[in-house]
Amino acid sequence: MDSEKLDNQLKLALDSTNRQRQKTSDLEIGYDEEESTWELIIKYIGDIERIQEELDMQLTVLFAGYAVIIIKQRLISRLSEYDEIEFIEMPKKLQFAVNDGRAASCINPVQRTETGLFGEGVIVAIIDSGIDYSHPDFRNPDNTTRIIAIWDQTIAPSGDLAPPEGFSTGTLYTRERINMALRKRTVPEQLELVPSTDLSGHGTHVA
């Protein structure tokens, strides 16, 4: 194994037993004990699809030479030996910090000045805990949704529902489908069409 290509946290996780990883949540991020696989982020050059085929790993290409993979633990050593692989790291756990984020982004002073900029006409992508799409703040006056789409990466594709083009994880709910859900009278009926929720409420608050 070319250990120089592995980030320190991944090295520690691979050197730990399952029991040790369970005691430290940061060491089991991306690990599926039942399948003995890891979801990892890689930096690469060249033909990554050839490596995907040779190691039988799931691959989602991002941009700028980055990709997300799902690979058997026993094959990580072989992966690191490919010249095309520059770096391998574990996913990182995101933390909630709404108020700190507003301050760091200088949002408050911009909204308090005479400019009164509140982002009208701007499309925003939010990566968070989810969104309550039925909330009044995300509806137009005619009760249709203001949301362009929801990509819920916790819901597996099924039937005619699939991830966004070029990706293999999660389910994409379009504006049209969200509007269909909003026309339903009860929450259970809405969730049959768009079962995406925001259990913590953080993503809804950020949006």
Rank of each mutant, 00 (worst) to 15 (best):
D160H: 12
I88D: 05
D132A: 10
C106W: 10
F118C: 01
G119F: 11
R50S: 13
G159N: 06
P141E: 06
A104D: 08
K23L: 15
E84M: 06
T113I: 06
T17K: 09
E54K: 14
L193N: 02
V187W: 12
D100R: 15
S16G: 05
A207W: 05
R74V: 08
I123V: 12
R78Y: 02
Y82S: 03
T145K: 07
E49S: 10
M90C: 07
I70A: 10
N143V: 01
I69L: 01
V206C: 09
L193F: 04
L193V: 06
D47A: 11
Y66M: 11
E89W: 03
D26S: 15
T204M: 11
E28V: 03
Q9I: 15
I51L: 05
V187N: 08
Q20L: 13
R185N: 12
E33G: 06
I41T: 12
D128V: 03
T24Y: 14
E189M: 08
P195A: 02
I155K: 09
P91Y: 09
V68F: 10
E34K: 15
T169E: 14
I42P: 00
S36M: 08
R185Y: 06
A97Y: 02
S3W: 05
Q153H: 11
A162Y: 10
E120L: 12
N99P: 00
P136D: 07
R21G: 02
Y173M: 02
K11G: 05
S196Y: 07
G30D: 08
T17Q: 07
F96S: 12
D152Y: 08
L62W: 14
V194P: 00
E81N: 13
T169V: 15
G119Y: 10
E33M: 14
Q73K: 13
F118G: 01
S196P: 02
I48W: 05
A13R: 11
E4K: 15
D26R: 15
R175E: 07
D128K: 03
M90V: 02
T174N: 01
G65Y: 05
S77T: 12
K11V: 09
A104H: 09
R19C: 02
L193T: 01
E39Y: 02
E34Q: 15
S25A: 14
I127Q: 09
D15K: 15
I126H: 00
E35N: 13
L182K: 06
D32I: 01
E81S: 13
A125R: 06
G30F: 07
L27Q: 10
S3C: 06
R74H: 09
A207D: 00
V110H: 01
N179D: 11
D32E: 10
T154L: 15
S3N: 10
Q20V: 14
E54H: 09
P188C: 07
G166A: 08
V206A: 09
